[in-house]
């Protein structure tokens, strides 16, 4: 049992790297990532868990890191936008967003890349409706979602080609 405390020692893996930290129990995971770990690619767009800009993958689940406390990450594997491209090589999802002009200001983009990555791992050939449902929790104010949907469709094709 993790005993009650306002401060907790945690161990976790972030983008494959094992880390330890002491966190305030009340600290949100997103602030831990940004303020404590300096991983500023994960963004904050709201304070109600509505916008998805802070989406990361924790133990294989897509979560909003503003809706999770830092101590809840103890023992977890966290994937953030910084760990998506390997050695500077963009993934099929990232390439597709570039190719289909799926981003403008780029603020919602890390969260959307995480949501799209999560979707395609589970469902490599999604329908348009499945794509829309998969990014329902990620607000974008620039693109009208049109090119985001096209990007994810293209990513699915890119991925299929790479797998072939």
């Amino acid at each position: 049992m993790v005993e009650a405390g306002n401060v907790q020692a945690i161990e976790f893996t972030v983008n494959g790297e094992r880390r330890e930290a002491t966190v305030a129990s009340r600290q949100l995971l997103v602030h831990f990532l940004r303020d404590s770990l300096g991983m500023k690619g994960t963004h904050i767009g709201c304070d109600t868990g509505s916008c998805g800009a802070c989406s990361v993958i924790v133990d294989g689940r897509l979560v909003k890191s503003c809706m999770m406390l830092a101590p809840q990450a103890d023992g977890c594997e966290i994937e953030t936008i910084e760990g998506i491209a390997k050695d500077g090589e963009l993934t099929a999802v990232q390439r597709a967003f570039h190719e289909e002009h799926g981003l403008q200001c780029g603020y919602c983009t890390p969260g959307l890349v995480m949501a799209a990555t999560f979707l395609l791992r589970r469902n490599p050939q999604p329908s348009e409706d499945e794509i829309r449902r998969a990014v329902r929790g990620n607000i974008c104010r620039c693109t009208g979602y049109v090119n985001i949907i096209r990007s994810i469709e293209r990513a699915a094709r890119n991925g299929a080609e790479e797998a072939a």
Binding site: M1, V2, E3, A4, G5, N6, Q8, A24, S25, R26, L28, L69, P71, Q72, D74
Partner: peptide, 8 residues
């Protein structure tokens, strides 16, 4: 959040 303790 306000200060709060956490237990698991």
């Amino acid at each position: 959040l306000e200060s709060v303790a956490y237990a698991r």
